[in-house]
């Protein structure tokens, strides 16, 4: 590690990475116009688009950002941020289950045989 030359990687590595990125770029644009999966359901398309984006990001991180050749410590921090971001998605446990909360009795009380007789009846007409 005394001499800087030991850090350097061949230019071809950068060019190959760049080429791969361009190919993926074309692929993602093409895939946006090809519908995959059942009608009216875009889940697969979204997954494909995100998978391509993640692949591109991984390529950049590994080669342009030299993480493939770096120490364990650098790798740890490089991964941590992307993983921790996913933790925030816990809040979807709220949004996805909100409609599941069962609330009994939106029917008018007039049609409800159990309604206490002493209570004011909502106007029935």
């Amino acid at each position: 590690m005394k001499i800087d030359h030991s850090h350097a990687h061949p230019i071809s590595m950068y060019l190959k990475t760049f080429f791969a990125l361009l190919v993926l770029m074309v692929l993602t644009v093409v895939m946006a116009f090809v519908h995959v999966g059942p009608e009216g359901n875009s889940v697969l398309n979204n997954l494909i688009a995100m998978a391509i984006a993640v692949t591109k990001a991984v390529l950049v991180v590994l080669f342009f950002m030299h993480v493939k050749f770096s120490t364990q410590l650098t790798k740890f921090w490089a991964i941590l941020g992307f993983l921790w971001f996913l933790l925030m998605f816990i809040m979807f446990a709220d949004y996805t289950t909100r409609p599941r909360e069962y609330i009994r009795g939106w029917e008018p009380a007039a049609e409800d045989p159990n309604a206490p007789a002493a209570l004011p009846q909502p106007p029935a007409r």
Binding site: P99, E107, P122, P123, A124
Partner: peptide
């Protein structure tokens, strides 16, 4: 509500966000 309700209301989903409430 006074215009009548459907015959079989079933469990009603509530307390969701406005736009997708009941989009259930």
């Amino acid at each position: 509500r006074t215009l009548g309700t459907s015959k079989a209301p079933g469990p009603v989903l509530g307390n969701a966000m406005p736009a997708q409430i009941d989009g259930g």
